Simulated assay, not measured.
Amino acid sequence: MRYSLSSMAFGARRSSLLGTAHRSACVAPSAGLLVSWRPRACAPRPRAREVTDVCGPDEFGRRARLPRFRSTGGGHHICSRDSLQISTLVCSTKLTQNVDLLGLLKWRSNIRALNENLKKLMKVDGGEVVKFLQDTLDALFSIMMEFSDSNTYDKLVFDALVFLIGLIADRKFQHFNAVLEAYIRQHFSATLAYKKLLSVLTEYVDTASRGLDCEPLKRAFKALEYIFKFTVRSRCLYSQLYEGKEKKEYDDSVRILLEKFNVLMKSPLEGNTLLMQGASLKYLPMILQDVATTFDPVLLSHLLHDFIRSLPPDRLMKQKLQSMTAIVGTQLFKMEGKTF
């Protein structure tokens, strides 16, 4: 945009806009606004004296006054060809400009596209997602709560959550781990999420235990620790809200899931099954600390015993020993007054 100084006003006083009678000046009246005066060459003219023009109202309804000059003596004066150029930059610190991520954050405005937006989330650049980590997590768990009576979006939301947790596990974004921990402790409030998370995970493990390829479970293993942090926190919130209601249903869900893991460990199949067994040995001990706070530790210890014993003796010996070492190092193994 270009404005002639001899005919229009910008709403600033002479001292802040023109300063002294130098040939160039630059001021920033507000954040994100750059005003630059780029005069064109004029022939020397006599010294000018100031005359004020009153122009139309500015954006605040005030009538601006613009200094102009008439020649009274030696020196230079502002040429009518001088121009004022304004550049602005608008930057949001709240909403992303990424269309795919924005579609998920505003999912309520277009529920028909929710299925597609959940899939697109997993293609968004990680750096953009982690900047809006809390908003994205809020959106995912809001979807879970909104469709608590349906499983239409359960797997997509679960996979999207695994994607987010996987980003935090990346070395490049490890400093966001504290943000995720704080979110679980202070902001997370989805009381029904534990039902959805356990249901999807059990289905994935069951698929793998039957020798079928289950790519989502491969990704979920790396996020298993935080999946159970969300699960346990959700159950605790639900129990506090409804005074321990549905405790048996919760215990049954956890028990069935662990029994599915034990079935997986018994399989003699190679290939993907062997990979799944190795991942189970590595990542399952990581959930024990949280699970033991809401699940019977004695029953949990028996299920873990079966978990280790289910693996054939000549299979994954090194991984089995590492898993047993990790289990022994948990608080579950150190509990007093418990017979395991």
Rank of each mutant, 00 (worst) to 15 (best):
I78P: 14
L105W: 04
T72N: 12
Q97E: 12
L121Y: 03
G73H: 11
V124A: 14
G75L: 06
K123I: 00
S83Y: 00
H76C: 10
T88L: 10
N117S: 15
N98V: 08
T72I: 03
C91T: 12
L118Q: 09
H77A: 15
V90W: 04
L121I: 02
K123N: 15
D100K: 13
G73M: 08
N117I: 04
N115R: 06
K123D: 15
L84G: 05
A113M: 04
V124W: 02
L118M: 06
N98T: 03
V124Q: 03
K120F: 06
S87P: 00
T72P: 00
V90N: 09
V90E: 07
N98G: 11
T72M: 13
L95G: 04
W107Y: 11
W107T: 05
H76A: 13
I78N: 05
T72W: 09
T96Q: 06
Q85N: 10
L105R: 01
S87V: 07
T96S: 13
L101F: 01
L118P: 14
H77F: 01
D82I: 01
D82H: 01
L84W: 00
S92H: 10
K94P: 00
S87Y: 02
K94Q: 14
L101Q: 10
S109H: 13
D100C: 09
T72K: 15
S109W: 10
L114I: 06
K106A: 09
S87R: 15
C79S: 04
N117H: 12
K94Y: 14
R108M: 09
L104H: 03
G75V: 02
C79D: 00
R112T: 15
N117Q: 14
C91Q: 14
C79V: 01
G75N: 11
G73Q: 10
R112P: 12
L89M: 13
G103M: 09
N98Q: 08
L105K: 02
N115G: 11
G74M: 13
L105I: 12
L101S: 09
Q97W: 04
M122W: 00
T96H: 04
G103Q: 12
G75S: 11
L114M: 06
D125R: 05
L105H: 02
I78C: 07
I111A: 11
D125E: 11
L118R: 13
D100P: 01
M122S: 15
C91W: 15
C79L: 01
M122I: 02
L114H: 08
T93Q: 05
T93M: 05
V99M: 09
R108I: 07
K120H: 11
L95M: 09
N110W: 01
N110C: 05
L105N: 03
T72F: 07
K120I: 01
K94E: 10
L101K: 03
L118V: 06
E116G: 08
N98W: 00
N115M: 05
G126P: 14
H76I: 04
N117V: 11
V99I: 07
T88P: 02
K106Y: 07
V99T: 13
S92M: 04
H76K: 12
H76W: 02
M122C: 12
T72D: 12
L121N: 06
N110V: 00
D82A: 06
L105C: 11
E116D: 13
N98E: 09
N98K: 07
G75A: 13
I111C: 10
D100M: 01
L102Q: 12
K123Q: 12
V124I: 07
S109Y: 08
T96K: 05
G126E: 03
K120S: 14
Q97T: 06
